[in-house]
Design a protein around this nucleic acid. Structure first.
Lengths: 98, 98
DNA sequence: TTTTCATTTCGATAATTAACTAACTGTGGA
DNA sequence: TCCACAGTTAGTTAATTATCGAAATGAAAA
């Protein structure tokens, strides 16, 4: 997968209201992340639907998960997100201001 | 459509390799933009497929078109793109550095 | 005014995505 | 061990998206 394809993949996964809301929420939660269940309550999305959306974000490298007991935490991957932003700024912005 | 939904829509339309390549190319072309035909040659995409992709970008407000004779120019809408970037920076980045 | 050119729309099909209920898995507590 | 809990996977269906050739449109050039 080319760099452009990888970034397109990330954009695509962010390009759904529910997933964007999930990422937005996680981005505010810091490195500790949030349990799936908390996201489910806050965003009011059926469990299985949310689970699919989270895997989509994981598949793009934007979120990672780690288990603590029976709680599965979701953590925003800021470095991956920053790479995406850098690509958008560097490759998709005007060369010169005006 | 909420602000989040609008941004999700823009991200979704950018979230395809062909469309991301189109926008990237247009972003370098400045305010004059580029004819559909030039994009078609450079990116080697069949005309009808490209046409659909461009309309998708137009539907998200990321590209506008204007005709000059029989040439249809496509122009990146930097302001719209900047709003998207601002949203991503403001709403989807860490609150504090670390 | 016929032809050529640039691009879109039509039409058809394949593939992917989205969504939800129900069933299942793994984990810890009683 | 049995139960409740957290979350995923299975199974299904509807809807959307992607793709491309062919036909149509609209505009200029010959």
């Amino acid at each position: 997968m080319s760099e452009l394809e990888l970034h397109a993949k990330a954009l695509k996964e962010l390009g759904h209201p529910a997933r964007l809301a999930v990422y937005k929420r996680l981005s505010k939660a810091g490195h500790a992340g949030l349990p799936v269940g908390t996201l489910q309550k806050e965003l009011a999305i059926p469990g299985s639907t949310l689970s699919h959306h989270i895997s989509a974000l994981v598949s793009a490298g934007l979120v990672k998960q780690h288990r603590e007991g029976r709680i599965l935490h979701c953590v925003a991957q800021y470095d991956q997100f920053d790479r995406l932003l850098a690509f958008l700024c560097d490759e998709c912005c005007k060369d010169e201001q005006g």
